Amino acid sequence: MFFASDNAGPAHPQVMQHVMDANAGYAASYGADDLMRGVEAKVREIFEAPEAAVYLVATGTAANALALACHTQPWQTVFCSPVSHIHEDECNAPEFYSSGAKLTLVPGGDKMAPDALRASIEGEESRGVHGPQRGPVSITQVTERGSVHSLEELRALTGIAQEFGLPVHLDGARFANAMVRLGCSAAEMTWKSGVDVVSFGGTKNGCMGVEAVVLFDPAKAWEFELRRKRGAHLFSKHRYLSAQMAGYLEKDLWLETARAANDACTYLTAGLRARGVAFLHEPQANMIFARFPARIHERLHAAGAKYYIWEGTLEGADADEMLAARLVCDWSITREQIDLFLSHFE
């Protein structure tokens, strides 16, 4: 009953087999391996972007920070949600890798509203040399609260960015989960909707640790390579990143694992709803924020369930006190585990 994070689940056997297969003999280092050439071709095919520059790093923070640094000057600001990963969970890495650019938090929730984004953009470049200049817009898909932007919502935000001549970054740590939910193509969710660069996640969806940065403007490629090396994120034994991504993409495994995680979340959501559980946000991908009594939390913890209590604290709580939890389904969670979890609500 492990619902703490999709980071905590196992790597998929297909990904592991590709790593084992790559662990034979010798291969060129620093991304010059043959596997990487195949990964580049496959990612370009998936995104319908034959000129795109494709690079691999080991973490989502590196992917986001390096991608944003290529599109941000130190005197600029990045517009993002107050609960975006780049703001809440990356220890100022975007600011560090961009040599000091700041973040401007667009008022609202996990999804930026177009009017709020416009007002935030208009609020900058208002103090001449004394204030930050306008920089990229960063959108998270799936959001940190489990919501998925529709294509129309994405285009509304990117349209405003384009009005001001600003590039758009998409944090796609759960990219596949969002795509499966929308039933669209990778191209439709990115460059066809006005996105300039995407962090294409693998770690949360069945890989050991690999993320792709896809730059739709190949003119940014050399800068990314320099920033990746200077930032200590260029692996010498790069083939082990390449092998993971190759296994992840083979036979559309990335869609299969995302679908499994989303379906598990749908099943868990239905079970919780049938038991009268209230949701803080409507679940749309593989993440749930739900509120239920402390006595049930106690029961679940005693049975070994793992998840985060999101609001409040269990220690000293009254039995009927309502505490919020974050529950995340990964590709490997089974219906038997979900049923066991739900049995403690009865």
Score class of each variant (00 low, 15 high):
residue 2 F to C: 03
residue 6 D to E: 05
residue 7 N to F: 15
residue 10 P to Q: 04
residue 17 Q to Y: 08
residue 17 Q to P: 08
residue 17 Q to S: 12
residue 20 M to L: 14
residue 20 M to R: 15
residue 21 D to M: 11
residue 24 A to Q: 15
residue 25 G to K: 07
residue 29 S to D: 13
residue 30 Y to F: 15
residue 31 G to F: 14
residue 34 D to F: 13
residue 34 D to C: 05
residue 36 M to E: 03
residue 39 V to R: 07
residue 44 R to W: 04
residue 45 E to S: 09
residue 50 P to A: 11
residue 52 A to I: 09
residue 56 L to E: 03
residue 58 A to W: 13
residue 59 T to M: 03
residue 60 G to T: 06
residue 64 N to F: 10
residue 65 A to T: 08
residue 65 A to P: 03
residue 71 H to F: 12
residue 71 H to M: 13
residue 72 T to W: 11
residue 76 Q to V: 11
residue 82 P to Q: 00
residue 85 H to P: 06
residue 107 P to I: 08
residue 110 D to H: 09
residue 111 K to P: 08
residue 111 K to A: 05
residue 117 L to N: 00
residue 121 I to M: 03
residue 122 E to Q: 13
residue 130 H to Y: 15
residue 133 Q to G: 14
residue 134 R to H: 05
residue 137 V to A: 03
residue 141 Q to T: 06
residue 144 E to Y: 09
residue 152 E to P: 00
residue 155 R to E: 00
residue 164 F to N: 06
residue 170 L to Y: 07
residue 174 R to K: 10
residue 174 R to L: 14
residue 177 N to G: 06
residue 177 N to D: 10
residue 177 N to L: 05
residue 178 A to W: 04
residue 184 C to V: 14
residue 186 A to S: 08
residue 186 A to H: 11
residue 186 A to V: 06
residue 187 A to S: 12
residue 188 E to N: 07
residue 193 S to R: 00
residue 193 S to Y: 00
residue 197 V to P: 04
residue 206 G to L: 11
residue 214 V to Y: 01
residue 220 K to A: 11
residue 220 K to H: 09
residue 226 L to N: 13
residue 227 R to I: 08
residue 231 G to M: 12
residue 237 K to Q: 12
residue 238 H to A: 07
residue 243 A to E: 05
residue 244 Q to M: 07
residue 247 G to H: 03
residue 255 L to C: 10
residue 255 L to G: 12
residue 256 E to H: 12
residue 268 L to S: 02
residue 270 A to V: 02
residue 270 A to M: 02
residue 275 R to T: 01
residue 279 F to L: 04
residue 287 M to R: 11
residue 290 A to I: 10
residue 292 F to G: 03
residue 293 P to Y: 03
residue 296 I to P: 05
residue 300 L to H: 08
residue 301 H to S: 10
residue 301 H to F: 15
residue 305 A to C: 07
residue 308 Y to W: 13
residue 309 I to P: 07
residue 314 L to Y: 04
residue 316 G to N: 05
residue 320 D to Q: 15
residue 322 M to L: 14
residue 325 A to T: 08
residue 328 V to E: 13
residue 332 S to L: 04
residue 336 E to R: 12
residue 337 Q to D: 12
residue 338 I to S: 08
residue 339 D to P: 02
residue 339 D to L: 00
residue 339 D to G: 01
residue 341 F to T: 04
residue 345 F to T: 05
